[in-house]
Simulated assay, not measured.
Amino acid sequence: MTATTEPDSQGAHFLGATPFFASGHDQRLSYGLFVPHDHTPDAKPLPLVVVQHGTGRSAERYRNQWADFATAHGCVILAPLFPAGIGRRRELHSFKFLEYDGIRFDEELLHIVDEVGEEFNTETETFFLHGFSGGGQFAHRFYYAHPDRLAGISIGAPGRITQLDESLPWWLGTAGFREKFGIDIDLEALRRVPVQMVVGSADVETWEINNAGGPNWMDGVEKTGRTRIERIEVLRDSFERNGIPVRFDVVPGVAHQGSAVIPVVQDFVAGLLATR
């Protein structure tokens, strides 16, 4: 192979499954992408789909599982990585509640999205967001804070929910949201965002979500149900009471497995991409 026909040794790493890059705003955080191989800097910007990991931080696996979808539907997949143990060893849950130890994970995601838009020729004014389990916790709370940035939201099996209810304290509900985050919840904006909720029909284990006294426990959680199915039903009802339509998917035979609900989530996102 001559020098004129050799691939760009740098550029090859910015297509397909990329390395994980440190965020330019907070280098404790990082992100990986899947960029379709035929996408070029001078092409029309591609839609962006953000797939948020859960407690296990399996960002790379989720990114790879969405690669074929990205190629087939002409979009870029962004998989943020918010490491465990920031600020305190063995800490697992920080990002799920948007703020921890001075870090605003919702704002950090927006910094990453904007950086990706600059570097990878993607649409970032609005984007699609999916999260499962701990990622589902982050996703629906991010939606409360930034509906104007979302083209669609898919909330998967959150073990702890925040209802749209001003009578309940944060994070069981949204009382004090403005005082904590400096943002008013905009119901009209929330109603404009297409919403999916998804859970497996066999997602009934409770050992991780009924841990009274744990670092991610708040008295009152028990009133939202024992299983993730019951809790996401309560969250759906909270949305619908506030005039927010929900596509509600229960995936037959699936337990608490984020990978197993991906086809149903992709069906939701593909429908939205088709009308974009």
Rank of each mutant, 00 (worst) to 15 (best):
V234M: 13
D101T: 06
V251C: 03
I86Y: 08
I262N: 06
S201Y: 07
I77Y: 04
C75G: 09
T162S: 13
F69V: 05
F132R: 00
H37F: 09
S30V: 04
R192P: 05
Q27A: 15
G136H: 13
T55C: 12
G131R: 01
G253L: 14
H140Q: 09
L48M: 06
L168N: 01
D42I: 09
R61Q: 14
L273W: 02
T2S: 13
Q52V: 09
A139Q: 02
G243F: 10
V204K: 07
P169V: 06
V113L: 05
F248S: 12
E119R: 15
D101G: 10
P158M: 13
I232A: 00
F138G: 01
E108R: 03
G54L: 07
V51T: 12
E118H: 13
H140V: 00
G134P: 07
T55K: 08
G11M: 08
G152L: 11
L187S: 01
I183P: 09
F268P: 00
V234C: 12
E205N: 12
L33C: 00
T18A: 04
E125R: 02
V234P: 09
S9Y: 03
G24Q: 11
G200S: 05
I86K: 04
E208T: 10
S238N: 03
P7V: 12
G152N: 08
A12G: 14
F248D: 13
L190C: 15
A67G: 11
W217E: 01
F20H: 13
N121L: 02
W66E: 04
G16P: 05
T162K: 04
G54E: 06
D219W: 00
D106A: 14
A202L: 12
A84P: 03
